[in-house]
């Protein structure tokens, strides 16, 4: 049984290269959101924080974004291993990309709505959360279903291929961030 495990593992999980492609796309959206909010916050931070302090915040954020991206990629790979191959594994890149894009877009819209009129009224709108989760789940499922359609699949593969290059920026930056966090907390 133990000898057979790696084979089962290989058979159920998507190929390594596809996981990396999905990870790179997931990273693009996660880091993209992080950098977007960073750019929004930067002008106010410059009013009262030193550059060193801002760099230390960025270190934590880069490390956090790495773990968040890894978490999402792992979740997708695990889902792929658990679901029948024809549901997910055979179209792993296309379905992961469209599913994840739908999830992130919906989350973005949700937080935009919450923050539109300030925290006070935003929190009152939290009653919408269960309904939003239900609608988002349906949308993600729809994205999964339609992702194998010709054009959508081609677009997904194109993005997956091109987002790989960003890993050359994100990974070293995150490793530096992790190092900075470790040093700040150990020294």
């Amino acid at each position: 049984m133990c000898r057979g495990f790696p084979d089962v593992f290989r058979r159920r999980f998507p190929p390594w290269t596809e996981i990396v492609s999905v990870f790179s796309f997931v990273s693009l959206l996660v880091y993209g959101r992080m950098f977007f909010v960073f750019a929004q916050k930067l002008p106010s931070w410059l009013m009262y924080l030193s550059l060193g302090r801002i760099a230390s915040i960025l270190s934590y954020a880069l490390a956090g974004a790495l773990f968040e991206s890894l978490g999402y990629a792992l979740l997708l790979a695990l889902a792929c291993a658990l679901l029948p191959a024809r549901w997910f594994r055979n179209e792993f890149i296309a379905r992961s990309l469209w599913g994840f894009t739908t999830w992130m877009a919906s989350l973005n819209l949700f937080f935009n709505r919450l923050s539109a009129n300030g925290l006070e009224s935003g929190l009152q709108e939290l009653d919408l959360l269960p309904a939003w989760l239900a609608v988002t789940t349906l949308l993600v499922l729809a994205a999964f279903v339609f992702a194998r359609a010709g054009l959508l699949k081609r677009v997904a593969l194109w993005f997956a291929d091109r987002s790989l290059v960003f890993l050359y920026i994100f990974l070293p930056a995150s490793l530096l961030g992790l190092l900075a966090v470790a040093v700040r907390n150990i020294v």
Partner: peptide, 23 residues
């Protein structure tokens, strides 16, 4: 630094509902 990074940036907080980390 960790407080500013998490509380004021990555998380939603009492003064900001625009978290850098949507999760």
């Amino acid at each position: 630094a960790s407080f500013l990074a998490f509380n004021d940036f990555m998380h939603a907080s009492e003064s900001s509902v625009s978290p850098a980390s949507l999760s």
